[in-house]
Write a protein that binds this DNA or RNA. Structure first.
Lengths: 260, 260
DNA sequence: CATTCAGGTTACAAAATTGTTACAAATATG
DNA sequence: CATATTTGTAACAATTTTGTAACCTGAATG
């Protein structure tokens, strides 16, 4: 388990756990409704590779799309208009985070929110930051939880559209907020892997997933487990689904899918 | 500390709240009664007319009901029991913000949160402030953003999920005014953290909270503690709840929730 | 038929998560 | 300042979840 506040080590196996299974399309197949929920994009600019990795790893884990730049110059060569938030280190040479923010605001005329990262916490920096329209200010070393709370707060403020998403297929409903799947109104008692697989199936009813598809989406690309694990897990899900268990179909040689 | 105070029979209303956020869930969590409240009320006390105007204007814009007083004496002539938050300037003569807070806490025995405003940022002031139960501390000049973020944080923390009066779920009742939770009519002797966690659970019965959710809502975003602290605190709550302790459920890998 | 292959099932071991306890640190109280 | 209470942590125990291997089934193939 990762302890709050400490900077998470970059370990691989943890990647998938933090992020929600996020269906980011808005499609209708048969009687299935999925509500869109696109990832927010964050650009982090810092001259320390380590910090960038920490930011990227942790915020990705929270479901954000994170790009990084090692310098303000690199950032300025990019198209900055597509981002929802900038995380800027104050002290980078030759163009500081403040200067970069100024350019973003005045030359590119973007109102994208900015959070400054700084090692110092001097009053001077703080004031300059706020004059440039910083939305927040985070002194290094910062706790990951603090960072993610602020990011969340800022993004919520700037785009109040946050949909709790529920997906219904047949007699099944997925409640992603509470990690529950209802079968005919009754919640199934699923473990984490079981939930993620069944949610994947229900949210993409009819679509065939090979074992590798499932491994990569539920377990993540770094984790190495036998693909027969998928079979076993699906057997467990089916058992918990009772008579409805046969709604998880298998197409021999291709994979599994949900349907009736 | 025991939250002393007479055990008064609280009237239970049968009115179902129209705006229950989660209809599919209200069946499961049987008889939940929530008495909602309107705008949060803030009282700002400062001897500078300008500051009062700034506070009033900005916080009103955020949807709060803001009253102002130009002196501690004026504030003390008012009925202070109806407010959800006090913003007190420290340096006012002849009764300072600290003295006023002390009176509010000790003579009026209100637990209403307080944010001190001060020009100085000396360590002494800070310590005195927190001893008096300041919930936060804001050094002038402050940014409006900073102010509003803190106000929001404090108000969210002090009355979780905008519910003020009483919340009942099953045989439990939360009296947020007196910080008491009754189990079958008998008040539990909960400490502050214990109270806040259990209140959060009861007021959001059925909703799953991860350890980080709980840390962020109960401990706040800046405090850094091990997330296992949550487990221990919950164990303590369960013990104090006796046989009802198993109403705090855990969903392995996801978090805790309240329900039966 | 025997054989092979894909998938279903079971039992058990490993790993992860949660529960509990005791004690230390921090805070409040007088 | 001394004392009591509350809060935080670490260590260990219990439980739950997950992964693997082995075995079973039935269809397809020769």
């Amino acid at each position: 388990m990762i302890y709050a506040g400490e900077i998470r080590p970059l370990e691989l196996s943890d990647t998938k756990l933090a992020s929600e299974p996020d269906p980011k399309r808005s499609e209708k197949c048969s009687n299935i409704t999925v509500m869109a929920n696109d990832k927010r994009r964050i650009l982090a600019v810092d001259d320390e590779e380590d910090i960038l990795e920490i930011l990227s790893f942790n915020l990705s884990g929270e479901g954000y799309k994170v790009d990084t730049c090692i310098s303000a110059e690199e950032a300025l060569r990019k198209d900055l208009s597509g981002y929802d938030l900038f995380l800027l280190d104050v002290m980078m040479g030759p163009i500081s985070g403040f200067r970069l923010a100024e350019k973003i605001r005045k030359e590119l005329t973007l109102t994208t929110p900015v959070i400054f990262l700084t090692a110092r916490d001097s009053e001077n920096d703080r004031i300059t930051g706020f004059n440039l329209g910083a939305d927040d200010y985070l002194a290094k070393p910062f706790s990951i939880r603090e960072l993610s709370a602020r990011v969340k707060a800022i993004l919520r403020r700037s785009s109040p559209e946050q949909v709790t998403l529920e997906t219904v297929a047949g007699d099944f409903m997925v409640d992603t907020a509470n990690k529950l799947i209802y079968s005919e109104g009754v919640p199934l008692e699923l473990t984490r892997k079981e939930y993620e697989i069944l949610a994947l199936f229900i949210c993409n009813a009819g679509k065939i997933f090979s074992r590798n598809d499932i491994l990569s989406k539920v377990w993540g690309d770094e984790v190495i487990v036998t693909d027969r694990t998928v079979d076993v897990t699906i057997a467990r899900i089916r058992k918990k689904m009772g008579e409805k268990g046969n709604m998880i179909k298998n197409k021999s040689g291709y994979g599994y899918y949900f349907g009736d």
